[in-house]
Computed example of a mutant assay.
Amino acid sequence: MAAMTTETRSDRLDAATLAHLQGWQGRSERLRDTVTAAPVAALSATLDRDDPAPDEGTPLPPLWHWLYFLPHARHSEIGADGHPKRGGFLPPVPLPRRMWAGGRLRWEPANPLQVGQRVERTSTIRSVTHKSGRTGELLFVLVEHSIANEAGLALTEEHDIVYRSAARPGDPAPAPQRPPLEGQAAWSRTVVPDDVLLFRYSALTFNGHRIHYDRRYVTEAEGYPGLVVHGPLIATLLLDLLRRELPGAQVAAFEFRALRPIFDLNPFSVHGRPSADGRRVNLWAQDHEGWLTMQAAATLA
């Protein structure tokens, strides 16, 4: 993500490369895991929650399934950015910047994920699409995850991954946006994204991407002003706000889209506003200047 260079771009995708990458469409992998209690307790502490100690049968809060099915690449297989080297299940996209751009999730209310369950995730690459923008090449990879427990399907997730060309001096920056519901939040919370919060979330999700914890790398190699707050962490904080305000609510669906990075240099805020009928909750995050960084919505069961 965001490497700076003054040289001519060498990360163009020609027709042959694009055809090769699109050959990954339809590929699947299956992973198994157990919903153990320790990561649940650790994320609860990381989010500064006063939850009871999790035990067998404790429901898994929405998005906390991201604590499981973690990649375990050997150290020799890690790239310069801290991610596993390209290839394998995901296509070996040569573009240097990659980000988790958003997603859509649907839970099965009658079959919740719970601590103690053995679970299986089937992941399928649904599409690989290409676009050329003002700042270079873009490649969009859509991955669908289906998670099942002993009783059957529990969760379906669509995961949007975007690969981009390296940034160059003079590239136009995307125009920032104000939240559509700015000033209309029913709930708000300020979050201080210090080094410890980012480190603990990286550790819990076994995320070695150096932009989240290596200040020298992120500023010198990638050209960012500070450590980047994880997109999944921001999404988790949005639903955590909903859980704090509506403790008994059950989330049936959630969608989110990352629009602008948040850095650890300043506090940011998360906000929510339920619809008139109470079935849908609009959620969003803003940086310290008030710009919209993530837009989301939850549907309640």
Rank of each mutant, 00 (worst) to 15 (best):
S28V: 13
A38N: 08
L31D: 11
E157R: 11
W284G: 03
T36L: 04
L238G: 05
Q184A: 14
P91T: 05
I234A: 09
H145P: 12
T293N: 05
T46K: 09
L237I: 07
G23H: 10
A154T: 06
A151P: 08
A301Y: 00
Y163W: 15
H65M: 06
D50M: 03
N111I: 04
L155A: 11
A101D: 11
L43N: 09
G116E: 00
L239M: 05
W107I: 00
P261Y: 04
W66E: 14
G170P: 08
R189D: 14
Q177A: 15
R74G: 04
L155G: 12
S76D: 15
T36N: 04
P176K: 01
T36H: 05
A276F: 05
A167H: 14
V192K: 13
P54K: 01
W24R: 08
E289C: 03
E245V: 02
F268Y: 15
E245P: 06
H20L: 10
G152P: 14
L241A: 02
A298D: 00
H130E: 05
S146N: 13
E56T: 12
L153H: 14
V218T: 15
L18N: 08
P84D: 01
T8A: 10
L105M: 15
R210H: 05
D81I: 02
A101P: 11
L138Y: 09
L233P: 11
A148I: 09
D195R: 15
L90H: 03
R164S: 07
D195F: 13
S44N: 13
G136T: 13
G133Y: 12
